[in-house]
Design a protein around this nucleic acid. Structure first.
Lengths: 343, 343
DNA sequence: ATGAAAGCGCTAACAC
DNA sequence: GTGTTAGCGCTTTCAT
């Protein structure tokens, strides 16, 4: 079938262990033998059987992720592509591969994870999000399996995680609107059970409170990370007796829905209502009008999480448990009243 | 360390081979033994070591993909997320996992693929695109390794592939504009070396020719799958002495750039210029104005490719070599002149 | 219906 | 420096 270490050994006239040593660049192997073996290897097109290597070395050079089940949550908003790109670019550089799987239900997800972890199929896990009381985290902790969370866990402040300072990010966004002179500022949020939603809401509230501005519950709406959510939110919010004059919106894609909703209702952005959003996807800049957005460095989030996981797999201890990727508010037209200028 | 088949065997008072038989649901194993062993397995939290299974079974229950290197090409336009979702949902259902890797250069990509294929780390490969004279395809054919291409190969018409009928899709798009009464129709294309670009251009040309309309080279511009490409194309196209009154654009994201460019130049869509695009991403509907777009079923593309690959891995022979996922033009405001209506 | 033994392809003591 | 040997955890004849 496939060419094995034995074939190479036989043809090179050495023992299999010598070939193995050549593969792993063992120090005390004669230059001559090494060269000869290497030549035979390329002649034969030999490549080590990775499964056999894994079996004996008890490592797989693979990290795993479970695809988020409610695909909409992460997929449509471009978060997924970008974070994967960050992850893979780091893992590949380090000689690791990324294994993805999924489950149709939460039970299946946990089952899949168990299979990978206990079956020693992977060396570590990246968690793309966490719910409160997350069974994945429970499992991984029980198994003492290396993992890194992208985001924040409510229950376990001591697990290794890479996150945005969402409280501060939302604070910055709201603060920017306040500086523009707005006094009635609303908030279009994502799913309330996610930490990211809770943190951003907290930051928004903090900014308003600090500025002595009113916070009304009716100015805060929850939804999904979908355009429809933003769209629908507008028919509610703009029909209030006293609608806000500015909105902090939790995601660019949701903001597109918001803009569309406002346009249909006859409002103009930013003249009638100002917007600040999150994630700063490429489309935010190209939108009409261009959307002010907090860039949270999604690629960097993936890259850093990946890096940290590999460190912990390789037994390096004592990194920080909570790493924060810096964010940056990119101001564009959507939050600049035409007669004013941001400075 | 981890609990193995031997531990289970010892505690259950049977031999390892019996335990193995229980795992694989061997027919002639007594109900009683099976139950006992299964109970012990759950008690001990036993999970088979996947690497050991793979080593002996010579299969990995894993399919591989190489992340496209020029990330922009596939990532920004949402194609990637959606196709991955289709792939994983199918593979997971069938008990397979997806392994992703990447390379910084083309040489590294081929090297990574070689490692996976010859190292027997995966059972099959999904190709997300193909260039002409693709070294990946060459390698896979040499190794007689199962693979399925999403897209079309210029060189090898006989390889198994799943694709959109892009000629027909572009024909439909152009035809729609012609029916709207347009006589000067332009085309904003993607990278000219990709089959998808060539096919769509061909379909566009065919529709115009059939209708006896003029095709001018200056009405056709090439670019990337980026908004910037669409944006820049407009300053060129609209400065022509006789600019087109309608455009077929190869991708929704590019179209957003086109809209932005047109807006800045003072043109309105669709009143001054009509647009039809491809891919029908969720944002197309929420855009201002909503974009007419050809839905090519990206999820389905991934799902079908995945399905076909698994069939071929499992030795089923004689499927079609070229599968076409049906497309569908979704007409929205961007291609409907305000005083006319599509019927 | 079950056990014993060989071996998947590789690595890692332990010899010399 | 290199060969010999004994597994890694599992499956699979071949016996019984």
């Amino acid at each position: 079938m496939s060419v094995t270490i034995k074939d190479v050994a036989r043809i090179a006239g050495v023992s299999p262990s010598t070939v193995s040593r050549v593969i792993s660049n063992h120090p005390r192997i004669s230059r001559k033998t090494s060269d000869k073996v290497k030549q035979i290897m390329t002649e034969l097109g030999y490549h080590p059987n990775i499964m056999a290597q894994s079996l004996v070395s008890r490592t797989t050079n693979t990290v795993g992720i479970i695809l988020p089940r409610p695909a909409e949550e992460l997929f449509l908003n471009l978060f997924f592509s970008e974070v994967i790109r960050g992850i893979v670019s780091q893992t590949s550089r380090a000689g690791y591969d990324l294994l993805m799987t999924s489950g149709a239900t939460e039970a299946e997800e946990v089952e899949a994870m168990t299979r990978l972890v206990r079956g020693r199929r992977i060396d570590g896990v990246l968690l793309l999000h966490s719910r409160s009381n997350d069974p994945m985290i429970k499992l991984l902790k029980e198994e003492e399996f290396p993992f890194v969370l992208i985001g924040r866990s409510a229950d376990d402040p001591d697990i290794v995680s890479v996150d945005t300072d969402n409280v501060q990010a939302a604070y910055d966004a709201a603060r920017h609107l306040i500086m523009q002179g707005h006094e009635r500022i609303g908030f279009v949020s994502g799913p309330p059970n996610l930490m990211v939603s809770q943190d951003r809401l907290a930051g928004y509230r903090k900014a308003l409170k600090e500025a002595g501005l009113e916070t009304r519950d009716e100015w805060m709406v929850e939804g999904e990370f979908l355009q429809e959510s933003g769209y629908r939110a507008m028919s509610f919010i703009m029909n209030l007796p006293e609608p806000p004059t500015a909105l902090v919106v939790t995601d660019d894609v949701v903001t597109f829905g918001v803009v569309r909703g406002l346009t249909e209702l006859g409002y103009r952005v930013p003249d009638d209502i100002s917007l600040v959003s999150f994630n700063n996807i490429a489309l935010a800049e190209m939108s009409t009008p261009p959307i002010s957005s907090v860039d949270i460095g999604i690629y960097q989030l993936g890259y850093t999480a990946s890096h940290s996981l590999l460190r912990s797999i390789q037994g390096e201890t004592g990194g920080q448990t909570r790493m924060i990727i810096p964010h940056r508010l990119v101001v564009r037209e959507s939050s600049l009243k035409s007669d004013r200028h941001w400075r």
